[in-house]
Amino acid sequence: MEVTLLKVTVVVYLLATASFIVYVVLLKEFFARLSPLILLGGFIIHTSALAVHFIQTGYPAIMQFREALSFYTWLMVGIYLLVQLKYRLAVLGCFIGPLAFIMSLAAFAFAAGREEIPPALKTYWLPLHVTLAFLGNAVFALAFGVSLMYLLQEYQLKSKKMPSLYERFPSLETLDRLNYLFLVWGFPLMTLGIITGSMWAGVHWGKYWSWDPRQISSAVTWLLYGTLLQGRIAAGWHGKKAAVLTIVGFAVVLGYFLWGDYLFPSRHGGRFE
């Protein structure tokens, strides 16, 4: 049941991606309205898959890497849909749609691991930690999207070449403001994610900080985003610089999330021993 729902989700995300691409190429308003609706459909199916998992196991679907990836995708799509409600940014969907499709598909590529969770880990610190950390990162995924759009728009203005493909991009000012908005939301969420994580570690491992590679990489991105936020607020960092730093930060997060555990095995990613 759960697996079937997840498979349907992947297909619907693919449909949404296709619709978003049709929108960007043909610039038909119809697709600007249709695409987020398809994505919403995928999100609802995705939600029901997660709900089924929770009802069957009594625990959120975050214990295995594949589950975590899927859960993260779910959060990201959800936040995008919220943003879409207020800002009507169908173009941003052109980044989120494919990302959602690839990540939810990638979740299937990872073998299902052990189903049993050590009883000691069955507390609500863990889901809280994962949810907060993922929420923060999902918001950063959106920040990544608007930053990429910013750089494309900026490149066009600087090169004085205006292909029609980007005609519907929001203005630089809007994109920059959204970058700030996502940063302001993402950073506290990430901070809380790190705090709850180390609380949990303190309870179960006996140490709040154990130089776990994931902890180190989190600290690095936290510092990066923190510097960016501080720079924006105090030094008035703007536009291109902020966009580039946001993209670098997200690349670190995503890269580590996908490959970090292979390079630096740690207690994250389902290895709890």
Binding site: S164, S171, L172
Partner: peptide
């Protein structure tokens, strides 16, 4: 897309301004 593009100097200027400012 017949009407969606600015074709006079002043409307191009406004169009560009809208790409920079929201």
């Amino acid at each position: 897309g017949i009407a969606s593009r600015a074709v006079s100097v002043s409307s191009v200027a406004v169009d560009l301004a809208r790409r920079i400012f929201d």
